[in-house]
Computed example of a mutant assay.
Amino acid sequence: MQPSPYTPGEVARIVPGRARQLAEVDERLSTLIDLGRLVGRIRVDHAARGFGKTSLLREYQRRASARGAATVWVTAGEEQGLIAQIAASVHTITDGLAEHVKTGLRERIETLQLSVGVPGIATATSTFRPPTDGDRPEQSGARALEAVIRAAVAERPLVILIDEIQSADPSGLRTLVYAWQHLQAEGADVPAAVFAAGLPNAPETIAGIVTFSERLAYRPLGPLHREAEEIALIGPARALGVHWTQPAVDRALAIAQGYPYFVQLIADSAWTAAGRPDPGSAIELSAVEHGRDAMQADLDALFRARWSACSPSERRMLAAIAEHGDGPVSRAAIAASLNTGSNQLSTPRARLIDKGLIQPADRGTLEFTIPGFAAFVRDSET
């Protein structure tokens, strides 16, 4: 018996199907490390939950670290605010620096924290008040953040990675983008980069906060194509000496529908149903069918949790979308089903996108982010 090599709900160890994204980031890492230059635009990969954004961002971090860059990780949305989170994360990499570099960097971190209304590391136990929009600390904070970045790259390049960027506080986002604007104009020789990930509403959310959000490079993540799904399914098993029969592969991928989380979930369920196979064994179609039954309990729990978190008006909109099938639905068709105007959809639409349940598809259309959720909604309404 061997433990499952699959990782549903965890950070994946490999990211098949994201070759284009990895190639783009590798190119930017070459600009950063080989040329010693600033990566001028903040990159934001965005997709619904379950598409592997965090795993992809972790792969960016591994590649940057392997190339010799210092990396700091932030998950946006904490109470102290984005800039304080970045400051605290940068502080963690000061150990091991030359003494004069360490001293200068820590002084700039303290200045940055003071500029955004947060106590320094030495006084972090005291009460702090996050800055509000009325404080407008962004301009002074941006200069202080710029100074931190310039000091941090004294010995090696710096990569800042921000997960869940759509949850960042508005003041922190403005401060970050202002700082990058200054560096674009004045710091081309500063080897630093920001890579971020967020939900489908990240571009819209950021554009509503930062007027010049064109300085960010938005990159949507789509479903996995067939070859990538097969790699994610077969590769981990093969590394343990186990192979999948072709009927089992075909059935598993029909269940997964290109959704990365489902690939991991059906593979893990089939692995368990096959008795956690030893080297030399095979995963057969029967194991996938039994795994599908076990997987359904996880899906039902996931769908019920998402459904119960919706307000009555949001549920009505979900039902109107599901009424038209499993694919993209025009806003006009949704409005007609609700007997209302398209403009009346804006609020529930925004909330459902924020919750990761729907996303914009083609122009003027919306679609569910999770395969199978439309059928669940239809069943819930009967």
Rank of each mutant, 00 (worst) to 15 (best):
I93Y: 03
W180D: 02
A12Q: 03
P3C: 00
D278Y: 11
I165N: 00
A282S: 12
L158C: 08
A23P: 05
P8W: 04
P131S: 15
R67C: 00
H91F: 14
S89K: 13
I266R: 11
H46R: 05
G327H: 10
S342E: 15
L240A: 12
P260S: 06
A237M: 12
E381P: 14
A202L: 04
I255R: 07
R349A: 14
V15A: 01
D293H: 12
A350R: 15
Q2H: 09
Q359G: 13
L318K: 14
E10L: 11
E27Y: 09
S167Q: 09
E110N: 15
P348W: 08
I234E: 13
S126W: 09
L32F: 01
V90S: 05
N339W: 08
E78M: 08
D95H: 07
V190K: 10
P328I: 15
Q80S: 07
T94P: 00
L114T: 12
S269P: 01
E107Y: 01
M317C: 01
P312T: 03
V288Y: 00
F376R: 06
L97H: 11
V118N: 08
T347G: 11
L105R: 00
A87D: 03
P360L: 04
L265G: 01
R238N: 11
R20L: 11
G208L: 06
I14Q: 15
T71I: 03
V39L: 09
F128W: 07
T382Q: 10
L35W: 05
L299T: 09
I93F: 08
A256C: 05
V74H: 06
E323F: 03
V44F: 02
P220E: 14
C310N: 10
I255N: 12
D293K: 15
E367P: 07
Q296A: 09
F128L: 04
D250Q: 13
T245K: 02
A232E: 07
A267S: 13
L161R: 02
R108I: 02
G77D: 00
A335C: 09
G327R: 14
L57M: 13
I86L: 04
E155P: 08
T7E: 12
P170Q: 04
D135E: 04
E155V: 09
H290S: 12
P191R: 02
F368R: 14
W244Q: 09
R349Y: 05
V25G: 13
A320K: 00
G40M: 14
Y259W: 06
D354C: 07
P223T: 02
E381Q: 13
R315C: 13
L145E: 01
A267E: 01
L345W: 00
D298K: 03
G187R: 04
D300A: 00
R219Y: 14
E214W: 06
F376E: 06
A305Y: 10
M295H: 07
I321V: 12
P277E: 04
L97G: 11
T125Q: 09
E284M: 12
T127Q: 07
P247L: 07
S311L: 02
